[in-house]
Amino acid sequence: MITLGHYLVLSALVFGLGLYAALSRRNAVAMLMGIELMLNAANINLVAFNKYAAPGAMQGQIFALIVITLAACEAAVGLALILAAYRRFETTYVDDLHLMRW
């Protein structure tokens, strides 16, 4: 029997992995993938809560659908910015973007 707890543990794991990737990876594209994981962890939560905690209305599922769309927009904008920076710096490693410090 799969309970709400299982989903919450799964989403916490996915969120933690995503956060770890976003904070520890230095390659911009890999960081973007970490952020996608974080957003999807929230989606798992939203859909699971919709099923177990608030089964009457569809708000959780609608929220998840909107987040999926937004994640696509965010990836598009992020990749565009990474590409613009790549043209100037010829690297996708964020540590090499250091014209400004303290």
Partner: peptide, 22 residues
């Protein structure tokens, strides 16, 4: 510098809003 600012803002911002969404 503007390109660098864009990338940095994006990554800090995206992590922050994903955390907020969670």
């Amino acid at each position: 510098k503007s390109s660098e600012a864009g990338v940095k803002y994006f990554f800090f911002g995206a992590v922050a809003s994903a955390t907020m969404l969670y």
